[in-house]
Amino acid sequence: MLRFAHRRASREFTEALRPLAIEGRHYGVLLSLGLHGSLSQRELIDRTGSDKSGMVRTVDDLEARGLAVRRPSPADRRAYAVELTETGRALHAEAGRIADSVAARLLDCLSEDEQSTFCALLERFVTADTT
């Protein structure tokens, strides 16, 4: 059931993001940078669950659109830090509103109490220690 739920949510979110010309992978990076500020590509990989080549492509896409920039990391001369541009921050905010709208639409089949319970259970599931 989790797989079916993921496919449904992913399909609806992908369609809703289409007017912004970004995909879920782009939104994941925008969200991480919006929440945490400048991050290395390694940190973005860890936060989004991406692989190295996928992250390079995603950051390349964001840079090409003027949504993010790579700068030398002040903490490590060998690494680059990725940060949002003003345009990236604006797109992040718009995509966040879309994400909220899609989530509300997806959960509309549940009562308010069921939505609260569902979200609490998902959070517990996602953060459970698997070791």
Rank of each mutant, 00 (worst) to 15 (best):
A21M: 08
D60W: 05
E83G: 13
R42T: 13
G66S: 12
T58R: 09
L84F: 12
S50G: 05
L31M: 08
A90V: 09
P74K: 09
V29L: 12
D76H: 14
E86S: 09
C109F: 02
D51Y: 11
R77Y: 04
M55T: 11
D61Q: 12
L33S: 09
H92R: 12
Q41M: 14
R97F: 02
L39H: 05
L44E: 04
R71Y: 01
Y80F: 13
G66R: 12
D51T: 07
G54T: 11
L35T: 09
D108A: 15
R57K: 15
S32A: 15
G54A: 11
R105Q: 14
A93D: 15
L44T: 03
L39E: 10
L106E: 11
V56H: 14
R25Q: 10
G54M: 03
G34P: 07
H36C: 08
D61F: 15
A79V: 03
Q41W: 00
V59K: 07
L39N: 07
L20I: 00
G28N: 13
V29I: 14
A79Y: 02
L67I: 05
L106K: 06
H26F: 05
G28W: 00
R70E: 10
S32L: 05
L106P: 08
L31T: 00
A75W: 11
D100K: 09
C109T: 13
D108Q: 09
H26M: 04
